[in-house]
Design a protein around this nucleic acid. Sequence first.
DNA 1: CTGAAAGCGCTAACAA
DNA 2: TTGTTAGCGCTTTCAG
Lengths: 345, 345
Amino acid sequence: MQRVTIAQVAERAGVSTATVSRVLSGRGPVSAAVRQRVRLAADELGYQVNSIARALRDGRTDTVGMVVPSITNPFFTSLVESVEHALGREGKELFLCDARSDPGIEARRLATLAARSVDGIIVSPSHGTLSGAAVQETAGRLPLVQLDRFVGGTSTDWVGVDDVAAMRQVMDHLHEGGARSAAFVGSMLTNSSTEQRFDGFRRRAEDLGIAVDPDHVLLGDYSVDWGETAAARLVSGGAPPDAIVCADDLIALGVTRACRALGVAVPGRVQVTGYDNIEFSRLGEPALTTVDQPRDRIAAEAVRLLAAAAAGDARREERGPSAHIALVPSLVVRDSTRAGPRTGP
Amino acid sequence: MQRVTIAQVAERAGVSTATVSRVLSGRGPVSAAVRQRVRLAADELGYQVNSIARALRDGRTDTVGMVVPSITNPFFTSLVESVEHALGREGKELFLCDARSDPGIEARRLATLAARSVDGIIVSPSHGTLSGAAVQETAGRLPLVQLDRFVGGTSTDWVGVDDVAAMRQVMDHLHEGGARSAAFVGSMLTNSSTEQRFDGFRRRAEDLGIAVDPDHVLLGDYSVDWGETAAARLVSGGAPPDAIVCADDLIALGVTRACRALGVAVPGRVQVTGYDNIEFSRLGEPALTTVDQPRDRIAAEAVRLLAAAAAGDARREERGPSAHIALVPSLVVRDSTRAGPRTGP
DNA sequence: CTGAAAGCGCTAACAA
DNA sequence: TTGTTAGCGCTTTCAG
């Protein structure tokens, strides 16, 4: 259980620790003979670098921290996967933290990551305002980029999708399918995703003359349960809308499930849309029409921004203006809406 | 971006670094006056400990590494959540790694975690044999416990469920519902989960006189797609079985979906069961009968074993015999099988 | 009660 | 080409 150090390898090989370091890191000139001996000694002893020591010395950990609101939300899981992939290409590791949608836990996670000298942080803030202080504070210490969601009033890099544009596509599609009235089911307006999506929904509904009953805007949380609850409320209370626009797929899955249970035909009686295109969205009954976020692209941009920020730090440059990169998502038409598949934007 | 060190705090407070350390860590005697001054200086400077330096010094990181086969599999995600919860109670962090079901990547992850001096490792090995070397090797360096899955021929602690007992429950239940023949759909027999579950399936089928056509054992991977493919094969090829037993819920979700598409009534014509009780299992059409693993319990036991192993290390004791803890899972009866809900074991 | 100093394991100057 | 040494930031003896 005792760890092998560079000194032990040095002793066994009959050289200095510096030489061992040179051989093992491949930097600096070493004669072939010595190289052999050191390699052998290291192998025999089963030497492995102590990355803690290296990190202390170098001030670099080759590790990026990521904080997501919920690790059980499939959208974030697949985003994590994309980020890990992107980091892997740079030889970096990912330290993943779950904030449990709690700005308090989130703040603690961010502090921990900063204390652990990660090279940068990728965070999808849990809350549209309450996450602000911790995010801003952390951004002052380390390269940080916000992903998907963002906090109002912060000045950090951000990568995500254009929710308003996405909602425009959704509404146009529903309109094409004959919707003249619509409901919106989302989470409490305490994060940018819901805010932006609701905003896009409302504006385009207005443009298209789609009626939105104030009672038909239901805000809870991102969960299947809430989708079921909300749908039941919409269906039982007077005249249901022609369409139910959901802020994410989990909600939409709950909505379609409730509709099925209540005997409301989807998309015959009411059209339903989701958001995120999680794997399970195609498994609903009917399969969900939803919005696909280009996760790999988002992850790649985030990693790129982080690398750029780190490089800037190293050169002791002023932090330039922060970048806001909004990618354009695409509508995935399946069976929960009426209009046929479209190919254009 | 420059980090504040203990030395700067010491200077500002007009004391030595040792005193600052004593104040900040709350260890050692310090006069109230000095304590005040140090606290103030630290706050003003925005001091945060550098856990890298602390880890190097203490040889402890208060971090546990976890390696799972696939972070996008909801079962593992919720297991991760449980582990994080359990660790949180001990003031430890979780470093999560995704092996992408690749023993090569897995081995690299394990090595990285060891290099980073995590206090212990929790791993659910991707492969029943190929994961062996890396797991055993790592276990020789650090406290390690295998979770859920395990590798044959290794001698480490393990916590999981009794798959054979679970399958006994499943088969009894199907039998009660009138099944006289059954199929098994799992992953290639390259991990202990599938192996054990198949074994339990086969043995109990025999006991109960349930026929298992050799062509009705289909092995692919843990995915919805494979479930769909397998179901199509079972249904189209001659006489379909009375029941389809799936090695996990993802497969079962694919199976029920295919059955629906092909017009095969579930559970009318064929009963279907899953395994894991992931959140989406109740969202299938019909909702899945499945096996619930006591995740929180599993996680708690794993964390406990790790702590015990770490304590043993510290006392330089011999490693005792390894513990194998198999918890008993419970059958969750929903709508994809015919017999009524049961309350007993 | 407080300070000086050693040392965790590693790497990069600097010397030889 | 190789060795010596300083030092990353922290904690902990050991003196005072």
